[in-house]
Amino acid sequence: MPHEFTLRHRVEFADTDMAGIIHFSSYFRYMEVTEHAFIRSLGFSVADRDSGIGWPRVDVGCSFRSPLRFEDELDVRLVVTAKKSKSLSYAFHITKVGTEPLLEVATGRMTVVCVAMDHETGTMKAARIPEALAAQLEVAPELGEAP
């Protein structure tokens, strides 16, 4: 069962700041795009309009260690760190491609909550993770369940 997923990205010019290095906010987009690709790889979407299920973020963070620049390639490795009945938590390990030894440029975290959308009122309410998805997810073995 999946507990880890990696996606390669390239730093685009629009992702950089006036100093020519990646803007800090770009890391959050890379983490989110990687999460979406992970969920798609399992046959689901984070925005399933038919079921009304959504996944708002309730906690995110990122620590930066080394800058990236325009056209650098990076791998974002997502690791499932916790799976509860209504939420998932991920750790992200972001490394620069082509470095020897491997250079970890940033680490991140994200917790998402499964919600059911009421289309009439526009409100969200925490909901159990759909069983078909939950059955395909496991917490990384070395991490165990979060408290």
Rank of each mutant, 00 (worst) to 15 (best):
S66G: 09
L133Q: 04
C62F: 03
W55M: 06
T99G: 00
V46T: 14
R65F: 15
A91N: 10
V33I: 09
R29F: 00
A135Y: 06
E73H: 14
L74Q: 09
C62R: 12
H119Q: 07
V76M: 14
H9M: 10
V76G: 11
V105R: 09
V76K: 07
I22P: 05
G43D: 09
F5H: 10
E138I: 13
A135Q: 14
L143Y: 10
P130Y: 08
M117Y: 12
G144F: 00
V105A: 10
M31V: 02
E142N: 06
E71Y: 06
L7A: 03
S26P: 07
D17R: 11
A47R: 10
G54E: 10
K83L: 15
E145Q: 15
M124S: 14
G61P: 01
E145Y: 03
V11M: 08
W55T: 09
W55N: 02
G43H: 11
P67G: 11
D48A: 07
T81C: 01
A116Q: 15
T34G: 05
S87M: 06
T16L: 07
V139P: 03
A135G: 13
A135M: 08
S89A: 15
A82L: 03
P67H: 11
E145I: 04
Y30K: 08
Q136G: 04
M31R: 08
S41Q: 02
T111C: 02
D72M: 11
E142W: 11
L103P: 01
R69M: 09
Y30W: 15
M18Y: 12
V112Q: 05
Y30H: 12
